[in-house]
Amino acid sequence: MTSERAFTLDDTEVEFEPGDSLLTAALASDRYIPHLCAHPDFSPHGSCRVCLVEVDGHNRPACTTAAQPGMTIRSDIEPINVMRRQLLQLLFVEGNHFCPSCEQSGQCQLQATVYTVGMTDLHYPPLGPRRELDASHPDLLLDRDRCIGCELCVKASSEVDQKHIFSLGGRGTHTQLIVNSEHNQLGETDMTPDDRAAHICPVGVILFKTGNYAQPTGQRLYDQQPISAIGNHRAEDVDLPPTP
């Protein structure tokens, strides 16, 4: 019997609470929909589009689409996964992602999502943008090469830390993470390793200067289980680097 507050996701019924998005309701029911920029603690803005699903025949981002009774949602179908792979390929070529040497490898949501969705090559020619690495902070490092523009650090710094340190500047493929300081340097801000923004990055942009590569290969978060099984937002809880 179909609940009054339920929709079907890939032929399975998912119940929801008033105000839930499709993504929120699916995750609450332990149903994984690939996503990157959405975070349960912050309002969604649908920028990465990886959570794309088919809603009654139309493509919509699951994070910004309100759940409605009787909706028919299709997520794990080839046409949607093809588009997800293309979106992930675009994210890869717009930045400089070198997984083999990245210290977030094995704990990176972008990499884990790529594995889950089945992206196996870049397909598009890498743009190779020049983005400045910022090591001016005594405890933290900003490696902008890996930024996917999810704005989670922007939200965490403004909404939780109340410091308004980050923003995105530039347009299109020139969009970059910028720092709210005179010389665009993190070392000029009052950011600390305890800030929420220091632990929110789903990739490897905001890093600590100590405790690097402390997690052995084989024991990293997504070495154990795929992101579809353990979700996106445990990385910052499981692998808190030691506070300097």
């Binding site: 083999p100 690097n212 590569y213 402390a214 997690q215 052995p216 290969t217 084989g218 024991q219």
Partner: peptide
Amino acid sequence: VTGKKIHGLAVVPGGMNK
């Protein structure tokens, strides 16, 4: 020692990680 036969990682500044 390193977690992988090729290109694992065990060496960290001042020691090893496991």
